[in-house]
């Protein structure tokens, strides 16, 4: 079984647990499980078995850090809950590293499904975004993390900005709409007219969700590229047990199949000839680069010291053939809906 099929199975199971978890383990499985998963498992979904740590960070800034600091409390007192959440987050990151994004996140899985739908509908797929486009989008996730997770919630807690900005990322996060809709609950697919702030945020959220859906049909993982979870995971990537290592060979310069296979368009994985550790900030540890590397042991995915998958010519041939056959299957043939001729 290929790594991608294994990953798909894990994603489906994770999606069911994350989105419909209470049906599996009771109403408060989250209490037993963890309360701050490093993946977008939305707390607004009332059937979820867990929730994303991003909501905790925002609430802790707004409801804890700012009130404690403004009443003259110590920094330790203000940020202790944040440190506890961060501790849980880090423990889980040690276990799975950034693979939370590529293997667990319900929104990441949804975008992969969108991409599959787009391909099956015969829509023209953008294999790789240009270096210029990726260079422009990369800083966005860091800005999202700094401002939406920490700065605005803290300012809202101090009363410097409106309460609407107390949890600004959750307000615009597509996972909030996706996971609630997946449980048959349309309460988050709304425009909130209670205040101008909520109105703007709800319009932005629904617009962004629609935008992500249509772009996701033709470009791989559009929202992941700007997701603050990716940025947060990147901060602790060095301590994760899942590793992606490269032993560059001269042939790598001309090949570039790994970069083409990468859903996040990390061109460096192809061009970097020096670093052994190739978990780049945008990497979600999906392992496609290893699968599509045709040279023996050039790319390897490891769990601590144990190999998960190593690049192998035989595996590559089999995988490439399977991919080609899979891509040939479209619902309306290859020419419909403006698709390019294969």
């Amino acid at each position: 079984m290929s790594l991608t099929i294994t990953r798909r199975l894990v994603q489906v199971i994770a999606f069911v647990v994350m989105v419909y978890g209470i049906g599996l383990g009771g109403y408060y499985l989250a209490d037993k499980f963890s309360s701050s998963l490093p993946a977008l498992a939305c707390a607004y979904d009332l059937q979820t078995a867990d929730h994303c740590s991003l909501v905790s960070f925002q609430h802790q800034m707004d409801h804890r850090a700012a009130p404690v600091l403004s009443s003259g409390g110590s920094i330790m007192e203000a940020f202790l809950p944040t440190l506890i959440t961060l501790g849980t987050f880090v423990v889980l990151l040690i276990i799975l590293s950034k693979a939370f994004c590529g293997w667990i996140c319900p929104l990441g899985f949804f975008q992969e499904v969108l991409s599959l739908i787009g391909q099956k509908l015969g829509l023209q797929q953008t294999e790789s975004l240009s270096k210029e486009t990726t260079a422009k989008t990369r800083p966005v996730k860091w800005l999202m993390m700094i401002f939406l997770l920490f700065v605005f919630p803290l300012l809202a807690g101090f009363g410097a900005v409106g309460h609407e900005l107390g949890d600004p990322f959750c307000r615009i996060c597509p996972s909030r709409i996706l996971t609630t809709l997946a449980t048959g609950d349309p309460k988050e697919l709304v425009v909130d007219t209670s205040t101008m702030g909520y109105f703007m945020l709800s319009v932005l959220a629904t617009f962004l969700f629609g935008l992500m859906m249509s772009i996701g049909l033709m470009v791989r993982q559009p929202f992941c590229r700007i997701c603050p979870m990716l940025a947060l995971n990147t901060l602790f990537k060095k301590i994760g047990l899942v590793r992606l290592v490269k032993d560059a060979k001269p042939r790598c310069v001309k090949c570039g199949l790994c970069a083409k296979a990468c859903p996040m368009d990390i061109h460096e994985i192809h061009t970097d000839m020096e670093n052994k550790d190739v978990i780049y900030p945008d990497c979600t540890l999906c392992g496609r680069c290893v699968e599509f590397c045709p040279d023996k042991d050039v790319l390897k995915m490891k769990y601590a010291f144990f190999p998960i998958l190593s690049a192998d010519p035989a595996y590559f041939k089999k995988r490439k053939k399977a991919q080609t056959q899979w891509e040939k299957i479209t619902l309306f043939g290859s020419k419909t809906f403006g698709s390019k001729k294969k």
Partner: peptide, 23 residues
């Protein structure tokens, strides 16, 4: 004070914008 119709409308505008961008 929450409008599902408004949400669907806004989502549709986003969806169409994405199609235009990708086209």
């Amino acid at each position: 004070w929450n409008s599902n119709l408004g949400g669907i409308l806004s989502l549709s505008v986003g969806f169409l914008s994405g199609i235009v961008i990708m086209r």
